[in-house]
């Protein structure tokens, strides 16, 4: 039988959950970025499933735009990672603690 929409969404949600967990738990900026990529990938999965369920191209068009946005975000994120490594000698977001209240 064909895949029901709920199954596709279930898979997407699981993927999203893993990505979110990675982004919430891991301390390295690199892994935060990886987690966000996984979350966006899950969003793509749900969009394509929705597109199939409603038999219309909108979801896939959104998927394409989201892909480009993900690429742009990752480029900026990685260059900030490089920047932090060069100037602050760290890639761990938890080591950045000079800005804080008293």
């Amino acid at each position: 039988m064909n895949v029901p929409l709920e199954h596709a969404l279930l898979l997407a949600t699981a993927v999203f959950g893993i990505g979110l967990s990675c982004a919430l738990i891991r301390r390295e900026l690199l892994f935060v970025l990886l987690g966000v990529e996984i979350m966006l990938c899950a969003a793509g999965l749900a969009l394509v499933a929705g597109s199939a369920a409603w038999r219309q191209p909108d979801g896939q068009v959104f998927w394409m735009l989201l892909l480009a946005i993900a690429a742009a975000e990752v480029a900026v994120g990685l260059s900030l990672l490089l920047h932090l490594h060069r100037r602050r000698r760290t890639g761990d977001v938890d080591e950045l603690r000079s800005l804080r209240g008293e």
């Binding site: 979110l20 982004a23 919430l24 987690g35 979350m39 966006l40 749900a46 994120g77």
Partner: peptide, 10 residues
């Protein structure tokens, strides 16, 4: 912000 962006997209 990127985490929030991912949440928004999904």
């Amino acid at each position: 912000g990127m985490i929030a962006g991912g949440m928004l997209a999904f």
